[in-house]
Design a protein around this nucleic acid. Sequence first.
DNA 1: TCTGAATCAGGAACTGTTATTGATTGACGA
DNA 2: TCGTCAATCAATAACAGTTCCTGATTCAGA
Lengths: 153, 153
Amino acid sequence: MIDEGKFHTQEMTNRLEQDIREKFRRSGYTLTSQRRAVLEALRDTRGHPSAEDIYLLVKKKNPRVALGTVYQALSVLEEIGVIGSKHWAESPTRYDLNTEPHLDIRCRRCGEVAEIPGVELGNLEAQIQENTPYSVSSTTLVVEGLCPTCQKE
Amino acid sequence: MIDEGKFHTQEMTNRLEQDIREKFRRSGYTLTSQRRAVLEALRDTRGHPSAEDIYLLVKKKNPRVALGTVYQALSVLEEIGVIGSKHWAESPTRYDLNTEPHLDIRCRRCGEVAEIPGVELGNLEAQIQENTPYSVSSTTLVVEGLCPTCQKE
DNA sequence: TCTGAATCAGGAACTGTTATTGATTGACGA
DNA sequence: TCGTCAATCAATAACAGTTCCTGATTCAGA
Ligand SMILES: [Mn+2]
Ligand SMILES: [Mn+2]
Ligand SMILES: [Zn+2]
Ligand SMILES: [Zn+2]
């Protein structure tokens, strides 16, 4: 009998698995089955799902989870640096397994998010800091547009 | 007796007044007393108030206005290009009489917004468009930090 | 002055998210 | 292998910001 209750897959037992375990160990949080399931949902979509998207995916395997639990798990996962998140105005926050600094663009029409490689921001942060008495702590580029599919319509 | 019911001030009767009238005329919307009051509140704060801020200011002169009316007015004013708006995650949208493209920074602690002059974005938009199949329609720089006052604490 | 359309105030509804609750779990030591 | 107790859980209420809906009022144009 397969131990489905723990949402364990072979995919999770790779080199990243150790990294994730280590981050949990260091943080003091425990790697629960729900947190694992959220991580897997994120891995399966291979995209930039919202909390709701993830909730629906997790529910397929475990119909008992609550949306609040997903939000809780996401916040822990983000806190310990396993995932990242981005926010576009007037739409829910999107989560991302890619925690490196990078650009994402969101389609105004269908909401799909895609990564934009190869953009050089240069000394933008420094330039901003030079021109304000505030101490700058974050500068985020929020990019929106129309995805190829939506352009055709 | 002063015609306070219409929220008319001398300040409103300047060169910008004609511009605003023209924009209303062209749009087909009417310049109602509430819309005028919202515009004046924005002018008086000289900053980047939220809808709620504006609502409270407008209520001082006309206690009968509803928050919904302020939102309605703001949306019309933005649509016809009289005002602009910016959104920082996890805080209400801020409105601005400055409709020119420019950078604003928001204090993480007290919420104060200030403008950042003199930053050159260069060919950033073009660079982004070159690196994505999406058609880019907007790239907004969301800048956050600590204002001088909050840095001291 | 009349009339239809625009606008209004007030409040309900909505979305995304966080906080609260009391029940359950599961890590760790004996 | 237990027992203990903090951590975590599901469920649901509360929340903030905003939009939508309704019926009443206003107001521009004929
Ligand atoms: Mn990404
Ligand atoms: Mn500004
Ligand atoms: Zn699209
Ligand atoms: Zn501050």
